[in-house]
Design a protein around this nucleic acid. Structure first.
Ligand SMILES: [Mn+2]
Ligand SMILES: [Mn+2]
Ligand SMILES: [Zn+2]
Ligand SMILES: [Zn+2]
Lengths: 138, 138
DNA sequence: ATAGTTTATGCAACTTAATTGCATTTACTG
DNA sequence: CAGTAAATGCAATTAAGTTGCATAAACTAT
């Protein structure tokens, strides 16, 4: 993934091109797993915590990242598909959390099943998280 | 739900009967929705927040409550079925989060579907959270 | 019922994540 | 290259989560 491509992704989402945003995007592309703010702070030590925090929020609002629900305290984020935008997220895939290594990954190939709810409930989005042991830790 | 019954629930889970634990259980039974530690602190003002914190943890380990994954910072908890124990949780139902009122509720009647993962993944548990608009807010 | 033992509670203190304001620097527009 | 809008760094604040320890309460066994 070239830097020029990353720049065009940012521009397509109406975000200015900055070093921090490029580095954060590259980090997400390099890693297979979802990342938390703490992960960014450990890896990208050249940036202030608040800058990383705001980068995550900007990416979230722009549709570059999606937030993954979990049971632990800190939020984790995964890369969105190209089809995501501020208007809504289109990537309805499952997520997997390994109970050994703790990593959370996007199962892009696994779409979440349709759900039907009792009368009166309006469904807007569905999140499905599988816990278990990942391939590497098995 | 009588207080005597609540006491027997505590004893069945090898927990001592205390005012705080009774009050917390009653609160969960009165509310239809899942609750966070902040909810307990607002409602049960007579107890220290550390005591409420430890009560939630004890109930979690004992199988009286289960933790519900979410995207916000603070954890939320729901009442377990009688079949849950420290050895494992047996209530594999969906959860619903209303984007209007923010409440999270257990859909006890809706069991999560079976999922099949790529080769090498070991599935231990599945969480399914539906976001949308609840009956009251529709 | 009571003494002895175990557990729960309250309080203080600490860690960490999340969040905001503001001055300064940087990126974009023309 | 100048002007404008946005991003960054730093300081400071809020809130959740967590632990240690002394005291109070719950249980157990006389
Ligand atoms: Mn994902
Ligand atoms: Mn539930
Ligand atoms: Zn693993
Ligand atoms: Zn609602």
């Amino acid at each position: 993934m070239s830097t020029d491509h990353l720049k065009s992704v940012l521009k397509n989402h109406n975000l200015r091109v900055t070093d921090c945003r490029i580095d954060v995007m590259e980090y997400f592309l390099d890693e297979k797993s979802a990342l938390s703010q703490g992960d960014l702070e450990s890896k990208l030590t050249g940036y202030d915590r608040v800058t990383l925090y705001r980068t995550l929020n900007n990416f979230l609002e722009s549709g570059i990242l999606h937030k993954i629900p979990n049971e632990s305290g800190s939020a984790t984020y995964g890369l969105c598909h190209d089809t995501c935008s501020p208007e809504g997220h289109m990537d309805n895939h499952m997520h997997f959390k390994c109970n050994r290594c703790g990593q959370i990954e996007c199962l892009d190939k696994k779409t979440v099943p349709e759900v039907s709810l009792p009368t009166g409930y309006q469904v807007e989005s569905v999140n499905l998280i599988v816990d278990g042991v990942c391939v590497k830790c098995a």
